[in-house]
Amino acid sequence: MTLTLDLSPELEQYLLQEASQRGLSVEVLALKLLTNAIVLNQKQTAAVDLLQSWIDDEDEAEQQETGQFLIQSLDSDRLSERKLFPAELKGITW
Rank of each mutant, 00 (worst) to 15 (best):
M1T: 08
M1C: 08
T4K: 12
L5M: 10
D6V: 13
L7M: 08
S8E: 09
S8Q: 06
E10W: 05
E10A: 14
L11A: 13
E12W: 03
E12T: 07
E12F: 10
L16A: 13
L16M: 04
Q17T: 15
E18G: 01
E18I: 00
A19S: 09
Q21Y: 04
R22C: 05
G23T: 01
G23Q: 01
S25D: 07
S25E: 02
S25Y: 06
V26D: 00
V26M: 04
E27K: 14
L29F: 03
L33P: 02
L33T: 04
L34R: 09
T35Q: 14
I38F: 14
V39P: 03
N41A: 14
N41H: 12
N41T: 04
Q42E: 14
Q42R: 14
K43S: 09
Q44D: 14
Q44N: 06
Q44K: 08
T45E: 13
A46Y: 08
A46M: 05
A46N: 04
D49C: 04
L50N: 09
L50R: 09
Q52D: 14
Q52R: 07
S53K: 04
S53D: 06
W54I: 07
I55M: 06
D56Y: 02
D56M: 07
E58Y: 07
E58S: 15
D59N: 14
A61N: 11
A61I: 11
E62F: 08
Q63W: 12
Q63F: 11
Q63R: 15
Q64I: 14
T66L: 13
T66D: 01
Q68Y: 14
F69R: 15
I71Y: 04
S73V: 03
S73G: 02
S73M: 13
S73P: 00
L74P: 02
L74H: 05
S76H: 05
S80N: 03
E81S: 10
E81T: 13
E81M: 07
R82W: 03
K83S: 04
K83R: 04
K83H: 07
P86E: 02
E88W: 11
E88P: 00
K90T: 08
G91M: 01
I92K: 05
I92F: 03
I92T: 10
T93E: 07
W94F: 12
